[in-house]
Design a protein around this nucleic acid. Structure first.
Length: 652
RNA sequence: GCGCCCGUAGCUCAGCUGGAUAGAGCGUUUGGCUACGAACCAAAAGGUCAGAGGUUCGAAUCCUCUCGGGCGUACCA
């Protein structure tokens, strides 16, 4: 609601400035520093001062005189050196809210968001969790604002990481495909691989000559032939299911899983390779360290080109000298497909049913009966990938540009975020040995190769156990099974909020104590507010009373009387800003901003809860008004939680 | 070397395209449960926005430099 008024006023004022002064500019609409100044502030007079060579205050006066009445605005005041402060018509505003005025703003274009994208060779860790939570929340935000979104989780099942684990099983531990298949049926196969990967990485480090195993395995995988290739499929497919299960615990699901093996076997890469060669986007290096490799010149993706006399080679290898394509090469083909530019498509088969309404599809190289939705061919593509890979994302975009798909390159958005590292304190708690050098650092980077990190499922388990203690403490009358479900919801809320409270370009120094917190700015705080709000309404009905017909009882005059109480007006204003908060967070591409709004909303409710005993209110009109506020709060808190992917428990 | 990011309260972090007295949570101190559940609320203390220049009516925000930290610059991803 607030959002509508804001936009309306922005348009009116900017039209006025264009007509009156011939100035076309983005009119800023701000919130005044102090709520006592009103609800909206326009610094337009400052923006105009230079162009008109007049004192801001004089311009402000002129604007007030010329603008006349603004819709929904009761009063315009000039403040400071030339601010225009607007006060809304409270009664009218309340009535519009009661009538349920809403706004929408979908683009109509299909948006693809790729996230999670974990190498299927080991268990997911907290870094992957940040990716998935960020991606999933962004998707929910887009959908809440009306966009059509397709969620892709790319499976790199032919890469070096999978090859290393397979090489470890085969060469180092002499395991057969049947033996590995048996292992996948054991619980926590992903944990087993976590250790196996660390072992083989260590072995490679100590025996560099054995790295030929890796090349042999990669070759077998690319050719899709023999026991090594088969084992790679067995391992990757099993791990993917583990990852899906882990993410499902947090309410994260996908539409389609495009696999790298199909990028190869359905000749996506071969097609892209031909295009890249034809357009001379890449060339065959004939000398130097990269002789025999197909490379892309650095000038395609770097602003800064190395100096001539500098013998630094800044080109990027796309196809290795042994003929095996790199990840980036395959990613270029994949990106082309995402935009529908490759002229090829995957075959799809249903992988699993997340719910009766939702099937997750996976790519396959075999013909399938019809029935799969149409995937790919997006207008905008968001790749949720950590910032360390920005160089690779630049190469991918450069690939599109080199093929003269400049617009698509522009709409290829690297939704980047900083890594999750470990705080030294947490390392000590987890029994991770630190070098003296690491002890001095603010944080320690996790490393899959070293097996150093916090596994996602371990963290979730830990959170559930901790939440269960709290739930048990307060709800001994409830069934044990139900209490565990509630504890799980609280754990999910705590974890998702924790991953979202930091803005994207902040490195999270993961601290177990902080992640396990349920008080203060946390998910459970927001959940608690939502639970208490709905509890008031249930209690009210349990007493045999029924909610009044708000539209009838709360007339404009009644609303004006009630909203004359300053803190109630401020509170209503806060609740009504939900849509504006979502729009702003989307514009900024910062889920953290929306999380912050949800927290503020919860804070607003807690204060309201403390200050106004709704059910015990004696005055009938005031009580009706408070009940309406409570209902509105309850609705908006639930809406905000839904966007954050945080479940709402029945009790806590 | 080059590129990108960061430096704001004791700690962890917000701070919108420059705008009014720089905010939040945690921690500390103090107060509030016989009113819809205290996983809550109220109050207090706590700042040279790393430093120095510059642009501007106005700078935490933009520009330049310096210092400190991180990441990238792979025939890993």
């Amino acid at each position: 609601m607030f959002h509508i008024i804001e936009k309306q006023i922005q348009r009116i004022v900017s039209d006025h400035l264009a007509a009156r002064y011939g100035e076309t500019m983005a009119v800023a609409v701000e919130s005044p520093k102090q709520s006592s100044f009103g609800e909206l502030a326009l610094p337009a007079a400052f923006q105009l001062a230079r162009a008109l060579k007049k004192a801001p205050r004089a311009i402000a006066q002129e604007l007030v005189d010329d603008l006349g009445a603004l819709p929904g605005v009761a009063k315009i005041e000039i403040a400071g050196n030339g601010y225009l402060n607007l006060r809304l018509d409270r009664g009218g505003y309340g009535q519009a809210l009661l009538a349920g005025v809403a706004d929408a703003g979908a683009t109509g274009h299909k948006i693809i968001v790729e996230h999670t994208n974990i190498n299927p060779n080991k268990a997911a860790h907290i870094g992957h969790l940040r990716n998935a939570v960020l991606g999933d929340t962004f998707v929910r935000m887009l959908r809440a604002s009306g966009d059509a979104v397709e969620v892709q989780n790319y499976i790199d099942n032919t890469g070096v990481q999978v090859a290393d684990v397979v090489a470890g099983f085969h060469f180092l531990e002499n395991k057969s495909v049947a033996e590995v298949t048996a292992l996948t049926r054991e619980p926590r196969f992903d944990y087993l691989c976590w250790d196996a990967y660390a072992r083989v990485s260590q072995y490679f480090k100590e025996h560099p000559e054995s790295e030929k195993w890796r090349a042999e395995t990669l070759h077998a995988i690319e050719a899709n032939d023999g026991a090594l290739a088969e084992m790679a499929h067995v391992v990757a497919d099993a791990i993917v299911l583990c990852h899906l299960a882990t993410m499902r615990r947090l309410g994260i699901i996908y539409d389609v899983l495009p696999r790298e093996s199909e990028i190869l076997h359905l000749k996506f890469w071969a097609t892209a390779f031909e295009l890249l060669k034809q357009r001379e986007a890449i060339y065959l290096a004939e000398e130097g360290k990269k002789a025999g490799c197909w490379v892309m010149a650095g000038s395609h993706f770097r602003d800064h080109v190395a100096a001539e006399d500098d013998d630094v080679d800044d080109s990027k290898v796309i196809v290795r000298s042994n003929g095996i394509v790199t990840y980036v090469g395959k990613d270029i083909a994949y990106q082309l497909w995402k935009f529908g530019l490759l002229g090829k498509d995957f075959h799809y088969r249903p992988l699993l049913e997340e719910s009766p309404e939702h099937t997750v599809w996976v790519s396959t190289d075999e013909e399938q009966p019809a029935g799969a939705p149409k995937f790919g061919a997006g207008y905008t593509v968001y790749n949720v990938i950590d910032s360390r890979q920005s160089y690779l994302q630049d190469v991918v975009a450069a690939g599109l540009r080199a093929l003269s798909y400049g617009e698509q390159a522009e709409r290829s958005i690297h939704f980047s975020y900083e890594m999750v590292a470990l705080s030294p304190r947490t390392c000590v708690e987890l029994g991770i040995e630190l070098s003296d050098e690491d002890k001095k650092r603010a944080y320690v980077e996790v490393s899959g190769r070293k097996g150093l990190g916090v596994k996602a499922d371990d963290l979730i388990d830990k959170l559930i156990e901790k939440a269960l203690v709290e739930v048990d403490d307060r709800n001994q009358d409830k069934p044990a099974e139900e209490r565990r479900r509630v504890a799980t919801q609280i754990a999910t809320g705590a974890l998702r909020y924790f991953m979202l409270k930091f803005t994207r370009n902040t490195v999270i120094a993961f601290d177990l104590q902080e992640a396990l917190a349920f008080v203060g700015e946390t998910g459970p705080y927001v959940q608690y507010a939502a639970v208490r709000a709905s509890k008031i309404l249930t209690k009210f009905e349990e007493r045999g009373e029924r909610l009044p017909d708000f539209a009838a009882v709360l007339t404009k005059e009644a609303l004006e009387r009630q909203l004359a109480t300053e803190d109630l007006w401020q509170t209503l204003l806060l609740i009504s800003k939900a849509q504006a908060a979502l729009a702003e967070a989307l514009a900024k591409g910062e889920p953290a901003h929306f999380a912050k709004y949800a927290f503020q909303l919860a804070q607003g409710f807690s204060v309201f809860y403390d200050g106004y005993p709704v059910i015990h209110e004696q005055d009938a009109e005031r009580r009706a008004f408070l009940l309406w506020m409570t209902q509105y709060f309850s609705k908006q808190l639930a809406w905000a939680l839904g966007i954050l992917g945080i479940p709402m428990p029945e009790y806590m």
